[in-house]
Amino acid sequence: MDKISVETPKDLSGALEIMSKSKLTPLAGGTDLMVQQEFGSLKAKQFINIWNLNELKGITHTNDSFRLGALTTFMEIRKHKLLKQKLPMLVQAAKLVGAIAIQNRATIAGNIANASPAADSVPALLCYDASLELTSTQKKRIVPLKDFYLGYKKMDIQSDELITAIIIPMPKDNPTIYYQKVGARLALSISKVCFAALVQMQSGKLVDVRISIGSIAPTPLRLYKTEDYLKQKKLNASIISNAIEQLADEIKPIDDIRSSKEYRVKVSTNLFRNFLESL
């Protein structure tokens, strides 16, 4: 009963068919699952191998949006010319996921669905207003990434659904971006902060501001209150210090690791200050 089994369907519809009948854990690049399996922390025993499903591969775009197949690897992202130009923070994130051999296997949907608060692609994707396409035999639905995480490792996804694609609106202007990852992976659970922000200025005013931080709360956060405070403002010393206070207020650091709570807030506010002062 408890023995490990893996189904390998030929195509997406076959995969969804199997998933509609039994609860199976999708196995993509395996960079999270195989580590958990090796170290005995994986509860799942029954898997569905999706690594070869062509319907989940490839990056396409229209004038309005990008569509990244669920199996898009970080290596594919970092090599993609138009992504480099249009979604540079996502490309920066991709380059920082592990090293080359990891980037060749680690998929974007796997990074999202592993639901680590430290997933490096997520703050960038949140700033770019990404949505997920979730597909089952019954239906296809689109969930904004900002609504996808319901709590620590809790997601708005049913057991018969796969993430089939990530949809990202095509940025219209050429915003100023800021993407910083602080802290090494090995020490990740104690010291990492991942900060992503994007700003569009018009005659000295901030007309668009988006800020997202990973590793600071049970899920990566978009900081809407701080964004709202800054919108339509011209920056000066007092606006910057108010914004920093607002940000410190809005982030709720993971407080089961108390010793590092202050550190994380400090790193986040320092990064935020650097960013604002660079504008």
Binding site: L27, M34, E38, N49, G98, I102, R185
Partner: peptide, 29 residues
């Protein structure tokens, strides 16, 4: 390390650099 950190197990799969400690044989057909 057995967890993708050290690279001692690196091989090429279809020409791509890969940590063989993280690859399940079911995906190698």
């Amino acid at each position: 390390c057995s967890e993708g950190e050290c690279g001692a197990c690196t091989v090429l799969i279809n020409g791509e650099l890969t940590n063989s400690c993280l690859v399940p044989i079911v995906q190698m057909d």
